[in-house]
Each structure stands twice: as C-alpha cells, then as structure tokens.
C-alpha cells in the first residue's frame, strides 16, 4: 500500500488524456431520419497513422461550442486512414453536430473502453445481434471479421429495427446479404410497406430470429448491442438456446463526461462503463445492479 502510493506520486507528469486531437469531417451520409454517419480523418499525420482501435470502443467527440459526447466507432480498424461515427440527433450537443458540414473541424480523444474481445473470438463462430442504433458499434465488428475472414468460423448477423425507414447502412447490408461468408437475418417490428416486405425476413422481434441461427452454441461468441430494454429478452432467449453466458457480450451506454474513469457518471453497479466496459459479459448483467 505504502509502496503503491509512493509510486503514484513519483510519476512524471503524463500526457494530458483530456486533450483531444483535431479531426476533419470528410463525409456525411444521411442514413435514416435523424441518423447521420460522419467520416473523419485526423489532421495530424502522426496521429492519423498511429491511431488504432478495437471494435466496440468509443471516442469522446468535441462538438465545437457544444461540448463532448461519447460515440462508439462504427468503422473497422482494418480500414486505415479514417474513422466513422453514426450519431442520432437526440440532445443539445448532437443537434449542433448534425448541423456541421464536410470540411468542418472537430476534436477527438480516445479510443476508450475495452471493446469486443476479438482476440478470443478468433477460431469461433460469431453471432452478432443488433437492434436499432446498436448496429453502429457492431458494424465495426462485422467489417473487422469480414476483413480477417479466415480467422473466424461461421458468422451470423441478426438486425432488427422499427421499420425499413430506420434501417441503417441499407445498401451496405443489402450487399452483405448476398455474400456467402456471412448469414444475415433481418426483422422489422412492423411490416407494412413494400419496402418493408422486401427487406424483412420476418415481422417480429430479434428474439424470434435467434432460434433460426444454425450454429453450435458452445463454439459461438455472441455480440449484442441494442436498446437496453431488449437485452433482457435477448439474453434469456440466447441462454434458452444453449449459448454459454460467458460467451455472450453486450454493449451498454451511459451518461459520460470524461471517458477515462474520472467523472463518475457512467457507473453501473461497481463498474465504470467507460473503463470496465462498454462491453460487458452477460454474467455481469446479472450481478451488477441497474445494468439493464
């Protein structure tokens, strides 16, 4: 104890983890009502080159004049030189972000959080379950796996949204569906329009798609991200279908100010979503109060 305290105080001053790096918006794509995908590259070449991350990690994005927001990265680290964030217009800061144009400069620090355990997922099947905006961090995982396809066994992507209108990355997912090396199953809460019909494999919830997955549960890792209310039901259905709870990982969001375990806002039970998460094994969701 004495030793560890001495060590803490005798450190040299570290690089300021609160200081962000400048990045320019190179592209903006409107994905769905109030949902935009922003592409960024760092202005500093050294930073751009050395910057790396893991699917499931997030950044703290400074929206000039408005403040910092935590956003998960939706591009894959296998594609270099840029990164992408999908942001829903929902609060005072994202409103300002949605007004920005290509060429505008923002500031970014990170990546933060633990990310999906991609290393231990290798040589296994991966089942990816996304609900709504939860597709964003999982898109990063999908492309990470597809770009290193030979390291993984079978891959499933289940994706559910309210209606076709709210489907993110429409064209991209359409092309994925045609591929042989990933099986995609899509569901919509309501199937009403012809577009809905063309898109959806079923009308209903993600839980109804899970039994259609033909994977050996014991050799499968599951990654889930979606609205918090869905986790309970998805978790239950996964366990019912034999997936071991140590192999199911969920991504959670909380209010955050710092991203590095200093501001306290993101506490879930005894863990910090920013440093101990945002990816948690399902086991945690049973033991950490207020998780779901």
């Amino acid at each position: 104890m004495k030793k560890s305290l001495e060590k803490l105080l005798n450190k040299p001053l570290p690089v300021d983890p609160f200081k962000p790096q400048r990045a320019v918006i190179t592209d903006i794509e409107e994905l769905a009502p109030d949902h935009k995908k922003f592409t960024f590259s760092f202005l500093d070449e050294g930073v751009a080159k050395s910057w790396d991350y893991i699917p499931g990690q997030f950044v703290m994005l400074t929206v000039p004049k408005a403040g910092e927001i935590p956003i998960s990265i939706c591009s894959s680290p296998t594609r270099k030189g840029f990164f992408e964030l999908t942001v829903r217009k929902v609060g005072r800061k994202t409103k300002v972000l949605h007004q920005l144009k290509p060429g505008d400069v923002v500031a970014v620090r990170g990546p933060y959080g633990n990310g999906f355990p991609v290393g231990i997922m290798e040589n296994h099947n991966v089942l990816i379950i996304a609900g709504g905006l939860g597709m964003a961090p999982l898109r990063s995982l999908v492309w990470y796996i597809l770009d290193r396809r030979n390291r993984f066994k079978e891959i499933y992507l289940l994706y559910g949204t309210r209606s076709y209108e709210f489907v993110l990355y429409k064209e991209e997912l359409r092309r994925l569906k045609e591929r042989e090396d990933i099986k995609c199953l899509f569901c919509l809460d309501r199937v009403e329009t012809p577009e809905d019909r063309e898109w959806a494999d079923i009308e209903g919830l993600l839980t109804e798609l899970i039994p259609q997955v033909k994977l050996k549960p014991s050799e499968t890792y599951v990654a889930v991200c979606g609205p918090p209310v869905a986790y309970k039901f998805i978790g239950k259905e996964l366990l019912k279908n034999g997936y071991p709870e140590s192999q199911i990982f969920v991504s959670l969001e909380r209010k955050m100010e710092c991203g590095i375990g200093k501001c306290g806002h993101c506490q879930i039970g005894y863990k910090f979503a920013c440093v101990d998460g945002p990816i948690f094994p399902l086991w945690d969701t049973k033991n950490l109060p207020e998780m779901l």
Partner: peptide, 12 residues
C-alpha cells in the same frame, strides 16, 4: 490519489 493517478493519470 488512487482515483486520479492509478489509471489514466490526470496530469493536473
């Protein structure tokens, strides 16, 4: 000290 300096130390 532990909170601020253990992980991601705050230089300030």
């Amino acid at each position: 000290d532990s909170v601020y300096l253990k992980e991601n130390p705050d230089p300030r």
